[in-house]
């Protein structure tokens, strides 16, 4: 694997179900380069979320391997997987999943604290991240005091807090109106350029997908297209 590639996926297959087997992913092979800003598209049930969960080390494949930054995560222990999720990956989901009992800055601090970073340092970093996503003035607001778009920005700041190599977004604008979605995408693009992190976004919104550099189409668990835009 070249230094340029951060993710190498080989013969990845995921089968669900005990009785009736459903192949969510069928022998997927792909590589993703460092700093890529890409989208995975496909109809629902195509396996795009499954693929994303595999890359995010949230799920394990039935067969095949995934190498993240040189480490075969399919062979990693539970502890190593947790550590990699914390340090190498940032997650943004459709629902922001901010901890409702914590304010914005505390939420952004969380992955840093999990990483064992001192609270004072974590707070400073979290504050910087919130400024970057345009929420420098609202750091003490709790999720219920922020709008949907603002909460998603906090979630983005949180995903980026540990400076992960890979940022994963699963339908991250699914709950937002198109104008806000647009802004969020622009923000992600800006962050991608500034930090040279790899962004993998799952979406069924073709317009949004068009704004990325590379689109991977998935149907019935198989890659049907892989194009640069």
């Amino acid at each position: 694997m070249s230094e340029k590639n951060i993710i190498q996926i080989t013969d990845l297959t995921k089968v669900y179900g005990d009785g009736v087997k459903i192949k969510a992913l069928d022998n997927v092979n792909m590589t993703i380069g460092r700093g890529e800003f890409m989208a995975i598209v496909g109809p629902s049930g195509s396996g795009k979320s499954t693929l994303l969960n595999m890359i995010g080390i949230l799920d394990t494949p039935t067969s095949g391997t995934i190498t993240l930054d040189g480490v075969d995560i399919t062979k990693a222990s539970e502890k190593e997987r947790s550590k990699m999720r914390n340090q190498k990956l940032g997650f943004i989901f459709q629902y922001h999943h901010l901890l409702p009992d914590f304010n914005a800055v505390e939420n952004v601090m969380m992955p840093l604290l999990i990483n064992g970073i001192k609270p004072t340092n974590a707070r400073a970093k979290a504050h910087t991240m919130l400024k970057e996503v345009g929420l420098g003035e609202r750091i003490n607001h709790k999720p219920r005091q922020l709008s949907g778009g603002e909460n998603q920005r906090v979630a983005i700041a949180r995903a980026l807090a540990n400076s992960p190599e890979i940022v994963i977004g699963d339908e991250l604008t699914g709950n937002l109106d198109s104008k806000t979605s647009e802004k969020i995408y622009e923000l992600l693009r800006k962050l991608n350029r500034e930090h040279n992190q790899t962004f993998i976004l799952v979406t069924h919104d073709e317009q949004m997908a068009e704004k990325t550099e590379r689109i991977i189409g998935l149907v019935d668990g198989k890659i049907t297209e892989d194009k640069s835009t």
Partner: peptide, 9 residues
């Protein structure tokens, strides 16, 4: 989400 952020079990 905590698990996704790398919180150990």
């Amino acid at each position: 989400m905590l698990l996704a952020m790398g919180t150990s079990r």
